[in-house]
């Protein structure tokens, strides 16, 4: 039981990170119907920016940890957004209105380019960051007699889950209430009609990429602080998993992305906890395949209606 609860907590934490990345995929897919393959690498870029900013903060002598974290988060979000914007501008916008596979190929090209750019400029070796936030709340006491283990909810996990919930709420409100959100939904339904009605489609799409990149940066910061180890290759697997999460939840749906992220995180954690660590990716992907076969539009997606 204790073991189960602990795995549940770990799974929810991992799922939150996947969910944050998945939102970027799902928003971009919703608005221009393409898989932004470079998104996982945007997440990686965010993690690297966070690491550098963190070290700069320490170097100039800022000691208050909450202040550092806040600055790291904001700077990482800002600069990663520029990356997200630039990728869209260079690789996707010239191909707007082209056939579907073209932006997919440029996305793969961008992904390769980003990985290797970071590898070139920052080196191929992993970068370990010692844990910054230690301690936590003990939920269940261990018991030597019954063999029960200590169940702990670390402060880091609390921060990740709370940040995710707050951002998720904020972005849902943004999509639902603001003018930008309305423009986004309009472009999602019919870009041509939206532009006829005065929505700046290009700008809206750019902002979607910026928002996705900002969320990926948050995920990058969390990843960095939670695992403490990053390298230039973390984006690929995280990206594929997050995309799996987006598809699982029903692509184009924001709550779906979050739900899918949680599902993937939980599946992965429980699989490694109870069966085998090696095959955790197989488990996540198999679940994806099974879900899609029986529920082709994902958990919360709207079924696609095709008009003939």
């Amino acid at each position: 039981m204790e073991y189960f609860v602990q795995q549940l907590i770990n799974g929810v934490t991992l799922g939150s990170i996947y969910g944050l990345i998945a939102i970027g995929y799902t928003m971009v897919y919703g608005i221009i119907g393409m898989i932004n393959f470079a998104h996982g690498d945007i997440f990686m870029v965010g993690a690297f920016i966070a690491l550098t900013v963190f070290l700069i903060m320490l170097a100039i002598g800022v000691t208050a940890l909450p202040l550092i974290l806040l600055i790291v988060l904001i700077v990482a979000m800002l600069f990663t957004s520029v990356w997200g914007w630039a990728v869209e501008r260079i690789a996707y916008r010239p191909l707007r209105g082209s056939f579907r596979l073209a932006p997919l190929i440029t996305a793969i090209g961008m992904s390769i380019a980003l990985q290797n750019f970071v590898q070139l400029t920052q080196g191929a070796r992993v970068k370990p960051l010692p844990p910054q936030i230690q301690g936590g709340v003990t939920l269940m006491q261990g018991d030597a007699e019954t063999g029960a283990i200590v169940v702990q909810l670390s402060y880091m996990q609390i921060i990740i889950i709370v940040t995710t919930v707050v951002l998720m709420t904020a972005f849902s409100l943004l999509i639902a209430k603001t003018e930008l959100g309305r423009a986004q939904r309009a472009c999602e339904q019919d870009p041509k009609m939206a532009s006829l009605l005065g929505v700046n489609v290009d700008r809206t799409i750019s902002l979607t990429f910026v928002m996705g990149a900002a969320l990926a940066a948050v995920a990058g910061v969390m990843f960095l602080l939670y695992y403490g180890v990053i390298d230039f290759y973390i984006g690929f697997l995280a990206g594929v998993k997050a995309f799996t999460a987006a598809v699982l939840g029903g692509i184009g749906s924001l709550p779906g992305a979050m739900l899918g992220g949680l599902a993937i995180g939980l599946i992965e954690t429980f699989w490694s906890g109870y069966f085998s660590v090696e095959y955790k990716d197989v488990a996540a992907f198999s679940i994806l395949a099974i879900t899609l076969i029986f529920l082709p539009s994902g958990l919360l997606g709207k079924p696609e209606v095709e008009k003939v």
């Binding site: 690789a91 090209g109 961008m110 390769i112 380019a113 990985q115």
Partner: peptide
Amino acid sequence: LIFGLLMV
């Protein structure tokens, strides 16, 4: 890096 950019 060049390869990726070339693809784009």
